[in-house]
Amino acid sequence: MTATTVEGAVQTEVVRAPRPAPARIPFSRIVTVELRKSFDTRSGFWLMASIGILAVIATGATILFAPDDQLTYDNFAAAIGFPMAVVLPVIAVLSVTSEWSQRTGLTSFTLVPHRGRVIGAKLAVTVGVGVASMLLAAAIGALGNLLGSTIAGTDTVWDVSALELAYIVLANVLGMLIGFMLGVLLRNSAAAIVGYFVISFVLVPLSMLLAQSQAWFEKAQPWVDFNFAQGYLFNGDMSGQHWAQIGVTSLFWLIIPMTIGLWSVLRSEVK
């Protein structure tokens, strides 16, 4: 095929007044924009609101249905903890995958042409939302504990220390990071959410069964099963070895897949 090229006569160029080169977009600005993006749709707003709503419902249910002697802060925390473990990772997944499922990445990644910075900002927002949500949930649980024991006429039992609370917050943030990792790796909302539930709720009993029947796996389990290692955080029972087990399992379940996911996000085509 021959290309017909016509040599252009040089035209008088109209030149715009030169402007100073703009400053690089600061990371903090990308973070605030990403935070805004997690609230500015109806679905995003209600997902965030559901954190508070579910915490109130779980607290109310504990006051109504738990026996009087079970109205301890530990039980309130456990009741609130379950919906948090479901909702927070979904928030983390959607913050990443919506750029692909809604195709907003076309704009996001042209306004900020470094995908790592956008993903990094999303990560910062995810961790921030996780910590803030857990503190809110803890506060709602504390109010419930006060209210519940007052209604029941029992002594208010504070059986969760600040350190134990911090462990629980960390455990939930780790759960969110698993969701975030799946979002980055799969870049598909449904697949990542299903993947999260498989890891958190399907693998757990399977791993337990295997540990019961195979002695070798029982020994290996704390070093390979992320959920199992995370369990120590919920029990508030953290030894050096437990931290090491969390570190080792995080490496395989979180850091390596996250690295693969980031690598592919940086190289993939955004359509």
Partner: peptide, 30 residues
Amino acid sequence: LPNPGLEVGVLLDASAQHAGRTGREILTIA
């Protein structure tokens, strides 16, 4: 480009917007 939006205006696909955002919100984000 340090801040590409100030130097290059890009429209690749008008349908590639979050269906749940208002038009004003999409502009506000940008």
